[in-house]
Structures are given as structure tokens and as C-alpha cells.
Design a protein around this nucleic acid. Structure first.
Lengths: 210, 210
DNA sequence: AAATACATACATACTAGTTGGTATGTCAAG
DNA sequence: CTTGACATACCAACTAGTATGTATGTATTT
């Protein structure tokens, strides 16, 4: 085995390398925001050099977009969209998605908030490429939630006089707001207190409670 | 009149100069975040130099803290805390505070969001000095809202079985969430849609609607 | 009331460190 | 042996912060 480097030879695997860069960039953005992300930190966390980084991504912006498309979008898909779409009971599917939130990555959720919302609040006014990508995720999130509410109406679970579009928007706003409030206090209790408000609201929509 | 400068002589007024710096810094932070704020832009927007800036504020962090204390806190006071505290009708005071939001600075609210929430989401995990200042504003905002709910209970306006603390937390989370969603879409309709969800929720708390 | 002394309120010029980006070299795989 | 996958070395621009100079207001002294 020829060994030109002092360190152990790195096996080449471009897809794994790319994934490692994306993972490190995601965490950097999650903690510090996109503007606060330092490519130097992405390098040190992956053990790669600037050459490798710029081989896979042409610039910082492209890397940022890729984090949205290849990391954040799949997360939202697996945390909310898929479970809610596949739930047998539409209302229970929504409630479960909400109640499961604190269990996913509790410490990260409270310390750093929601990766999607963080980037929206930072970048929406500054970079329309970010904004359109992020709002597309938001729209699909809204769409899934709205359809679940419509199904819950059809199933006779919640009142038929509610506006599902308005209600879905309100629910997602509340979810993001709750995570944001918990981040402000850096406190899990505030998250749970706040999420109870959402489930309480959902219960107020049920027919038997009217 | 001796005139050493080429430009017109600047009259000296330290308090006005300080306010001008704070105003420019606030807008810079509002648009770009604290990390994105450039002191050079604060200088160019005020027409001042770095010497003047560093005369009034010892460093960037001190300026950032002053923006929180001297700009954002008074804004929250005048937009929400004072009107809600001084309202004759506690429930109407809350509803009015919510419904008035889009009228304050509509284009800024939708484009840049909420100055308080922006800074919380950006800085809470990064700088505890920011976080404690911002969360103190949040706490006073929560406190005012909770007391208004308690007064509404006392006045027989809303059901007495609700948890005012939990409800206040939920309402403020929803407000911030709605502003955040509108910012994502850069769309006033989504803000109004979402805020209707909040007022609808408040109505669901009233006694006659139970 | 004029002169002096001193602190405040700025301006100018510079520095050190950071950061995104590039040019080029090298090793490995097909 | 050509192309892809990296490493090394370097640069130009930016940015917070500093050192220092100067003009202005104000209190004190005589």
C-alpha cells in the first residue's frame, strides 16, 4: 500500500464525502445560521480540505442550497409529511406528529430550534433562492396538514365548519412559534407548555367537545 | 465662523448622534441579523465615522445589546404591553393588539418579520447576553398577556377552566409563528390568514361560544 | 470678560485577523 | 492515460477594532 501522506490514507468515496460535507454544513448552519457558517469549520469537522469542498460545491451558496434540498427537506418529510400522510387516523396523525416533536432530538430542538424556520427567518429577505426553496418545503408541509384536516372533517372527527387552509396555517405557525419560544428560554418546560396549547386547540375542534 | 471641513459644519448633539446610530444599527440588524450587520453600513447610513461610533459604543456587541434595550424593548412596550395593560376590555385589548399588527409597518413586518423573534432565533444559542435580554422582553410580554387573560376570566369573558399561563404562551407563539410564515411567503395574505386563526382561537375561549 | 484647562465629540488612518475563493499539484480508478 | 477526487498553497477582499489627531463645549481662574 503506497502511503504518501503522513496520516492514514483516505479511501475515496465521493458520495460519502459529499454526504459528510452536507452533514457538517447542516450542523454549522443549524448552530450559527447560513451567514455564520464558516467553511473552515466545515473543513475541520469533516477532516477535508478546501480543495475537496470546492470540488463538490462550487461556492458557499450552492452548498447552502444543497443543505436545504438534501438535508432539511428530507427531515421535514420524515418527521411530519410522511407520518401524517400515512396515518390511518388523520386527527391522531397530526396530534402524534406534534407530540413526537420533543422526542426527536430534544436538546437540539430546544437549543437550536427548527432548521427550516431558522433559515427562513434569516435568509428569506436576503436571498430569494433560499426563500423559494424553503417556502416550497413550507407549502408541502402546509398542504399535508390541510389535507389531514380535510380528512378529519370527512371522518367526522372535527367540526365541518372550520376553514382547513386557515387552520393548517395556524397550526404550523403555532408549532414553529412554540419551538421558537422554547429556544428563547432554552427550556424544555416552555416547549411542553406551549405544545399543550396546540393539542388543546386541536381538541377544541373535535365535534364531541363543541 | 471657522470652517476647517470641506462639508457643512456638523452641529454637535451627542444624544441625537447616539439615537441615529441606534436607529441605523436597528435597521441593519432587522434586515441582516446581528452577525450580518456591518458597522461600515451603520457609518454610511448615519454619515458618521468609526471614531464617532466607537465613542458612543465600545464594540459591536455593546451596540447590539443597546439596540435590544433601547430600541426593541420600547417597541414591544408600545405595540403590545402598554395597549394591553391599559385596555378597558381585557379580551378586546388582546384581540386589538393582534389585529393591529399588520397595520403598524406592514411591508417591514412581512419582509423582515419580528425584530424580537429574529434576534432570538439567531442569537439565543450563540450569546447568552443577548438571550437573557431578549427573553426578559419575552417574559414581560408573556406576563402582560397572561394577566390580560386572567382579567378576561374575572370579567366572565372567557371560560374559567383555561390555563392562562399555557394559553398566553400559546398565543404569543402563534403570533410569532404567523409573522414568520408570512415572511417565508413574503405575502400579506398569509399573515392575515394566519392571524385569523388566532382570533378564531380566542373566540373559541369565550363563554358564550362554548 | 478674557484666558486657560480640560473633557467631550468627533474624524482620519491604519492594523491584524478572518474568510470566501482560486490556481495548481498529485494520487487513484477505470 | 485520461478523468475524477482530492490536497496544498496562496490571494484579495472584507471587517472589527485601535491609535491618534483635532475641533468644540464648558468650567475655572484671574
Amino acid at each position: 500500500m503506497t502511503q504518501t501522506n503522513t496520516e492514514t490514507r483516505k479511501e475515496r468515496n465521493p458520495s460519502i464525502t459529499r454526504q459528510a460535507i452536507l452533514q457538517a454544513a447542516f450542523m454549522e448552519i443549524f448552530r450559527n445560521g447560513y451567514q455564520g457558517m464558516r467553511l473552515e469549520n466545515v473543513m475541520s469537522e469533516t477532516g477535508l480540505t478546501k480543495g475537496a469542498l470546492y470540488h463538490h460545491f462550487s461556492n458557499k451558496q450552492t452548498l447552502g442550497y444543497a443543505v436545504v434540498d438534501d438535508m432539511i427537506q428530507p427531515m421535514m418529510q420524515s418527521i411530519w409529511i410522511d407520518p401524517v400522510n400515512n396515518a390511518d387516523d388523520p386527527l391522531l396523525g397530526l396530534i402524534t406528529a406534534i407530540e413526537d416533536l420533543p422526542d426527536k432530538k430534544p436538546e437540539q430542538l430546544i437549543e437550536f430550534g427548527c432548521p427550516l424556520n431558522n433559515l427562513i427567518q434569516e435568509m428569506a429577505p436576503l436571498d430569494n433562492g433560499f426563500r423559494t426553496r424553503l417556502d416550497a418545503i413550507m407549502e408541502s408541509w402546509l398542504d399535508t396538514t390541510e389535507k389531514a384536516l380535510e380528512a378529519a372533517v370527512q371522518a367526522g372527527q372535527i367540526r365541518s365548519d372550520i376553514n382547513c387552509h386557515e387552520t393548517a396555517t395556524f397550526i404550523l405557525a403555532s408549532v414553529e412559534g412554540c419551538i421558537g419560544l422554547a429556544k428563547s428560554a432554552q427550556c424544555g418546560n416552555r416547549l411542553r407548555t406551549c405544545l399543550k396549547g396546540i393539542t388543546g386547540y386541536l381538541n377544541s375542534l373535535t365535534v364531541q367537545s363543541g
